[in-house]
Amino acid sequence: MVTYIWVFFIVIGSLFTIANGGIANLNSEILKGGSDGIKLLLDMLPLLVLWTGIMQIAEDSHLLDLFAKLVRPLLSKLFPSLPKDHPAIGYIASNIAANALGLGSAATPFGLKAMECLQKENPQKDTATEAMITFLVLNTGGVTVIPTTVIALRMMYQSANPTEIILTSILATFISNIAGLIFDYRKRRKNHG
């Protein structure tokens, strides 16, 4: 699926640019595409290293297990295919918690780690498991409780009440996530026949 998007982006983007006489721009765009990717990676690297380091401490002290145990009742309902003590649960929970607090940069390392844990027990390595899809639905829905970045930007532009959008954000997030989960649930039911 990602393949189609990738091809679509490049083909449509290129043809549309050429049609509008932007061949010179397209040329430079293609040549600098790689360095933009590297720049993004370099921005991510320190955060990834820092958070996986911190989370390793939490894992070794069994704090992560404790946290996983706390949220297990809820998560095992969302991820019925995962065994109760699956190592991914702690990371899934941490990822959701970090996203909920608006800490997107901390959420990514936890999410990648969760995917790695899920992949370990995946019998078909090139195919997504049910748990992976449910996890990504929750992730792309962005379970925000405190939209930190938005509040900071609203403050910067002198909003009279920067935090007034918290409640409405939570409401909208809640609805979009429920919609995604229902979609996922129905697909899963259909696949099971």
């Binding site: 699926m1 990602v2 090139d126 195919t127 997504a128 992976m132 990504l136």
Partner: peptide, 11 residues
């Protein structure tokens, strides 16, 4: 993972 099933549609 290349076969992502209904992940994109759901998202």
């Amino acid at each position: 993972v290349t076969k992502t099933k209904h992940a994109l549609q759901a998202g």
